[in-house]
Design a protein around this nucleic acid. Structure first.
Lengths: 104, 104
DNA sequence: GCACATTTGTATAACAATGTAGTACTTAAC
DNA sequence: GTTAAGTACTACATTGTTATACAAATGTGC
């Protein structure tokens, strides 16, 4: 169904738009979830999302900063958007009427 | 962090209140998610949720209906409610500003 | 009223997919 | 060459899935 962690990465990438790349996504996920997002977790998940066709990635240029390795840029595909939408709507629908969510 | 499937089971159990038991939870999850919830998936997940202290289960009485095996009753603990709340709020917070969720 | 099918429900075991930790490698600026 | 930013890899733990078996009660035929 798309895991919770995969969903967090998709949302982060989507929100970062043209500036979405590995490390930036990582920071954003960590700030939103109260939850560490280690490099290993991130890149293996990126690989899997790409395999499923939910994102596209390519190597971009190195920005002229101290540690200038090329960034792995990320774009969410339309299939990825659809998957994220489905996940969100399932969670929302399930939560209607619970103590911890608003009544809808 | 609590998986998506675990969350669905917690919400279903919570909504069913005193009538929460294995098979009823299963039906409810299937109707909410467009996703099959097989017996195996359900009971292994119940075991795991119980181990983590998110639910309590005990064997109830058999109702006087055709197939009257004793039901495994389920109650969400306060720890379970807290976990569900945390999950929901993480997903909600992460989704703010995406194409597929409303702006907050 | 007894064998036996039928129905509702639970359990187990083996496996596949996801999520995580830790560490090593690459590239460029200082 | 040291330091910083970033990516990649490997091995492992946790979650999710499939398929099948088991249990207990009611209903039916004879």
């Amino acid at each position: 169904m798309l895991g919770a962690f995969e969903y967090l990465i998709l949302t982060a990438a989507s929100q970062l738009g043209d500036h979405a790349y590995g490390a930036a996504i990582r920071e954003r996920v960590e700030s939103v979830a109260a939850h560490p997002c280690t490099p290993g977790a991130l890149y293996t998940t990126l690989d899997r999302l790409e395999q499923k066709g939910f994102i596209e990635t390519w190597l971009g240029d190195a920005t002229p900063e101290r540690g200038g390795r090329a960034k792995r840029m990320v774009r969410v595909t339309s299939a990825g958007v659809a998957a994220a939408r489905a996940f969100y709507s399932t969670i929302t629908r399930a939560s209607v009427g619970t103590k911890w969510a608003r009544p809808a």
